[in-house]
Simulated scan of single mutants.
Amino acid sequence: MKWGIKQHAAQGTSKLYNRKCYGYNNDRDGNLVINESEAKNVRLIYNLYLQGKSVLGIAKELERLGIKSPTGKTTWPKRTIDVMLSNEKYTGTVRLLDNGKHDSYYRAENNNPVIVSKETFQAVQIEKQHRSNVTKSEEGVQRKSKKYSSKK
């Protein structure tokens, strides 16, 4: 089965390329089309993050505005927003069979309609890295100090 999944991904015939996520619906042929009311919320999430709001702050703002989560609940899980901010599908690009280490995967550019520009997506990725308290050095992965100076 794994071999078959890889073959479909490599040939571009995998149905996973058109797997629905928040902001999209599938048309009759199974292709992704923008759900404009949800896409407006996706753009709002990206913009709020770039304006300096935290993931928790975005969740609270969405709840304040009465925007329901993808599962229809009034509260937004932080993980849902974090995944949305990292989902390249919103730029029209899809990665399949990515193990997270980016060793080998299949990538389809211009796979689906764009909700967030590549520039906005990249700006969010840079900001996420900047805000992260994890650093990588020759010694490996380390957390930044949580101590704050009282002099500021």
Rank of each mutant, 00 (worst) to 15 (best):
E138N: 10
P113I: 04
G100Q: 06
L65P: 00
E38R: 06
S145I: 10
P70D: 02
K118N: 10
A108K: 14
M84I: 15
N133S: 13
G100V: 11
V141F: 12
L62C: 06
V134S: 06
S69T: 10
A10D: 08
D82M: 09
D82C: 08
N99Y: 06
Y46P: 01
N25H: 12
N112W: 00
L62E: 02
D82H: 10
W3T: 10
G23R: 06
L62A: 04
N99M: 07
E127I: 01
S145V: 10
S54L: 03
K78T: 12
E139T: 13
R95N: 10
A10T: 04
K146N: 13
E38D: 13
K15R: 14
Q142F: 08
K2N: 14
T135K: 13
E61D: 11
S69F: 07
A59S: 15
Y106L: 14
L85G: 04
D27V: 04
V116Y: 00
N112I: 05
K118L: 12
T120Q: 15
G52S: 12
Q125H: 06
K20E: 15
N47I: 00
R19K: 14
P77F: 02
E61M: 06
V83P: 00
N35P: 00
T13A: 03
K128G: 04
N111D: 11
G140C: 14
H102F: 08
S14M: 07
V134G: 02
H102D: 09
E109D: 13
S104K: 12
L16R: 13
R143C: 04
I67Y: 05
L48F: 09
N133C: 07
I115C: 04
Y106Q: 14
T120N: 07
V114S: 07
K147C: 11
K152D: 08
K15D: 07
P113D: 11
K128Y: 04
Y90W: 10
E88Y: 05
K68Y: 03
G23D: 12
L16V: 08
Q7A: 06
K136C: 12
G52D: 07
P113T: 06
K146P: 02
G92I: 05
K136H: 11
D29V: 02
T93Y: 03
K89N: 04
N18S: 14
K40G: 02
T93S: 09
T91A: 13
S37I: 08
T135R: 15
R43D: 00
